[in-house]
Write a protein that binds this DNA or RNA. Structure first.
Lengths: 139, 139
DNA sequence: ATCCTACGATAGACAATGTCTAAGTCAAGT
DNA sequence: ACTTGACTTAGACATTGTCTATCGTAGGAT
């Protein structure tokens, strides 16, 4: 189901073992990994891959619009392969779990012109914070 | 107009020269400073104040609910003394300028139960991103 | 007014995350 | 199979923040 690798190849992305491995890690698991977690999983498949390459490759995938960067906390950025359907995030304040969610309506419409101060707004990022059922149970 | 110092004293906050200076920096300028910027301005008034103290004090002010932590980018956290009126942030993608904004409605109501996955949601954080008039002009 | 003591402040080491550089390697076109 | 420019590497460096051990002091007690 590696649409991602196909798309990248089709866009003229030079394919290397390292890039393939990073793409596979993201494509394989639909979760929100940090750069270090991506690196750890990449090392399992390609032990000599370097940290810098993982960072570079993630940065490229973000530039290409194939992966989203998510900063839900002040810790490491996370990488979200679900870049093709707009969505927001729901974060557990206790365990850090992240879920993709799809709110109704367009959050942009909640900001009247008088509150835009002449800005040309291009994007809205919404993060819902709470406690997940698991953490509530073990509270 | 130092309500802040008054409130803190009233809450039994032990007053020191360092804490006073940090509180004054935040109270004086209604902007969104990073910890290092707070430190720099504090040093102007009290040259021997240490970085650790600024971090500690900011952390306490956040715990006390007198100041909000804002993470609009992956860079340093910013500290927002406007903690008593709920608001969201509008960020310039070019120069990083931050404005407080007040959207209409409650963003929580945009998330149907079916999209809450059993989470107990306590907070919503909305960040609008765009380009400010100044940066548009100089583009 | 002075003394005590617990709480606050300090310097600097350490940690986490990310970026940069110089040199080596290799994918892909010829 | 060559060649070349793009990719990868190791590790130094940068930024932001935290921790620890020690010193200083605010504010209550005397």
């Amino acid at each position: 189901m590696s649409d991602l690798l196909e798309r990248l190849r089709g866009r003229g992305w030079r394919m290397t073992a390292q890039r393939r491995v990073v793409a596979e890690v993201l494509d394989g698991e639909h979760v929100h990994l940090t750069a270090d977690e991506v690196h750890a999983r990449a090392v399992d498949k390609l032990p000599e891959i370097s940290r810098a390459t993982v960072y570079n490759t993630l940065g490229e995938l973000v530039s290409l619009g194939e992966v989203l960067e998510v900063s839900t906390d002040r810790r490491a950025k996370r990488y979200d392969p679900n870049a093709h359907r707009p969505h927001q995030h729901l974060v557990c304040a206790r365990c850090g779990a992240i879920r993709d969610v799809h709110p109704t309506g367009n959050p942009l419409s909640a900001l009247p012109d008088s509150e835009r101060f002449g800005f040309t707004i291009s994007d809205v990022e919404v993060t819902y914070r709470g406690v997940c059922p698991n953490c509530v149970a073990t509270a």
